[in-house]
Design a protein around this nucleic acid. Structure first.
Length: 559
RNA sequence: UGGUCCAUGGUGUAACGGUAGCACAGCAGAUUUUGGUUCUGUUUGUCAGGGUUCGAAUCCUUGUGGACCAACCA
């Protein structure tokens, strides 16, 4: 009588893992085989990442393997650009497909099987128009009607199918349909189309074929050919399962099984390829890899790490319930990872000049500052300090509210890794705008050897004017202003006009002068930033991945 | 108005007939040379009504609510 459940060593399983463990325990399989089956008609997004982590993760956990299979059954929407990006994204996420296959690899086999169904009297060629087929299909509440071509003889159907393949018919002139049940409550069972005619160039098979299999006529058999044990897809395919099984049964081939889980929905973004394509085509974003996009390539460019995405996929779980994940969870995952690995650097985005009136003119001191307090092994770097400095506009207020710990007239702050300063007075232009603040510093308060005995509440970052370099900084924010843009009449009406703010002349410390694309840093007190490929030797470009949590913003907003 | 799937704090996700737990978010506090991190504490939940049972989030049933299904898309 042991109570093994709920021990920390046996974390709970999701429903697919339960199915797999039951299958394994029953000896149904020795090992499992899964597949990730994207259609190469767009870039992968964070929802695909959930599926990738699920499929590859399951295979790793249960000692099986995962195939990448491009579901390329529709030549008019599919392109090699997408094929390439998909593999790159899967690998970047940290997974290696056991095999890379294409549904189009199996076109000949599929055709043979179609012949088999025709011979068995289970498929027929239908010359009805798309409108007529839709008409005869009925509705969810009324049965459909049989097509007049439904009882064509096997011999004639065979000849017709061969002529379809041979290219004797025009696009849309006829289709091959499975003969199932026009009165089935499941619409997908009302004589589904197996082949349609498209005289179109296929990215792999070229002009070899002019008939192309529909999703249902391809997917299950591809799974079967590859001996996929657990074919995992999203909820909207539930009604397809009956047909999936019908084809496999009718063909008497390896019985793969389909299981469905709820797709990811993330707040403040859209997740459909169609909508993402619109954003790209209509140039609301710079491309599929625009850092505001929820695509894997966009998130990579934004600075997300593969680890953070895998962690996110793990945390959101797998279930059958429709869900809307809060963006804050994703942000938590990337902050948690970056906090551990990103080196700290100083940058001033919105500069305000500070003159240390009691610091010698022309003098520069090189001070040490930690690279990452979370990981002392990363050591320190040198920061120049001088008489003229820049701080953030935000870090000074002439008339501060209560609890404002930063610089203000008569107040003191610590310049991080440097000295404590006190603000003595401000310099203004004719319009009354503050152009500089004058401070005195306390030489004995130097960081690491402070004997001043002074206590300050605020610590701010800063840059020596003489040594500051410039950079372009792109501040990204959520792409949409509403939680669920897809639920709106027109999702494009909800685009966030402030989703990107570009700062052309941000100031950065010298240690940031030479960086390469993909490098990630924490700009102290500002957030995490990633070097963009647009960077040049003269001027680096930094993308803000995510801000730091800002509890002062909350406090000051409330006041 | 046919069929299918689903329903646990604000958001996700566990509990497999026996104390409703975890994470994120929120709130409060401690620490802090990042108003970051870390640590501590804490508010909030089983859709509703019947039934089975000593005992129901869990099983049955009826409602209610949501999602999906009528592309020659996947």
């Amino acid at each position: 009588m042991s109570t093994e459940k709920n021990t920390p060593s046996s974390p709970s399983l999701n429903f697919i893992e339960e199915i797999i463990e039951a299958d394994l325990a029953a000896g149904k399989y020795q090992n499992i085989v899964t597949r990730f089956p994207p259609e190469p008609n767009g870039y992968l997004h964070i929802g695909h990442a959930k599926s990738i982590c699920l499929n590859f993760g399951l295979a790793q956990k249960y000692k099986g393997y995962t195939n990448l299979r491009y579901d390329d059954t529709n030549p008019v929407t599919e392109e090699t650009e997408y094929v390439d990006s998909i593999l790159a994204d899967v690998q970047w996420l940290g997974f290696q497909p056991a095999n890379i296959y294409y549904a189009s690899d199996y076109f000949e086999q599929l055709y043979d099987w179609a012949l088999k169904l025709v011979k068995a009297g289970k498929a027929y060629v239908d010359f009805s128009s798309p409108e007529q087929i839709a008409e005869m299909k009925g509705t969810p509440t009324e049965a459909g009607k049989d097509s007049p071509y439904r009882n064509t003889s096997v011999e004639e159907n065979l000849a017709l199918l061969e002529r379809m393949r041979a290219g004797e018919f025009k696009d849309g002139q006829c289709t091959l349909r499975a003969k199932i049940d026009m009165a089935a409550p499941n619409m997908h069972m009302r004589d589904p189309i197996m082949y349609r005619i498209k005289h179109a160039h296929h990215h792999r098979t070229g002009d070899k074929w002019c008939i192309y299999p529909m999703y249902d006529w391809a997917h299950g058999q591809c799974d079967s050919i590859e001996n996929i044990t657990h074919s995992i897809c999203t909820l909207e395919f539930i009604p397809h399962r009956e047909l999936y099984d019908w084809y496999i049964d009718s063909l008497d081939i390896y019985p793969s099984h389909q299981y469905e889980f709820a797709r990811l929905n993330l707040s403040y973004t859209v997740m459909s390829k169609r909508k993402l394509l619109q954003l790209v085509n209509e140039q609301f974003v710079s491309g599929w890899d625009d850092p505001r996009m929820p695509t894997i390539s966009g998130m990579r460019r934004r600075g997300y790490t593969p680890e953070s995405l895998r962690d996110f996929a793990q945390r959101i779980g797998i279930a059958k319930r429709e869900n809307m994940i809060e963006l804050s969870l994703l942000e938590f995952c990337i902050r948690e990872d970056l906090n551990k690995i990103a080196l700290r650097r100083f940058a001033v985005l919105d500069p305000l000049k500070v003159v240390i009136t009691n610091y010698p003119e022309g003098q520069t001191e090189w001070l040490e500052s930690e690279n990452n307090p979370e990981n002392p092994e990363t050591g320190t770097r040198k920061l120049p300090f001088g008489r003229e400095l820049f701080i953030e506009q935000e870090d000074f207020m002439e008339n501060p509210p209560p609890k404002y710990f930063r610089l203000h007239p008569g107040g003191m702050v610590r310049l991080k890794s440097a000295y404590i300063i006190r603000c003595d007075n401000v310099e203004k232009d004719a319009d009354g705008n503050i152009t500089a603040v004058h401070c005195t510093y306390f030489p004995e308060s130097r960081s690491g050897q402070d004997t001043s005995g002074l206590k300050v509440q605020g610590v701010i970052h800063w840059l020596a004017a003489e040594h500051a370099k410039t950079a372009t900084v792109r501040l990204y924010d959520r792409l949409f202003t509403v939680e669920d843009p897809a639920a709106e009449e027109d999702f494009k009406q909800c685009l966030n006009p402030e989703s990107l703010r570009v700062i052309e002349n941000a100031l950065i410390e010298p240690a940031l002068a030479e960086v390469s694309a993909g490098d990630r840093f924490q700009f102290t007190r500002l957030g995490y930033f990633c070097v963009d490929p647009d960077s040049t030797a003269e001027k680096p470009v930094f993308n803000r991945t995510v801000t730091l949590k800002d509890s002062w913003a909350k406090v000051s907003k409330k006041a």
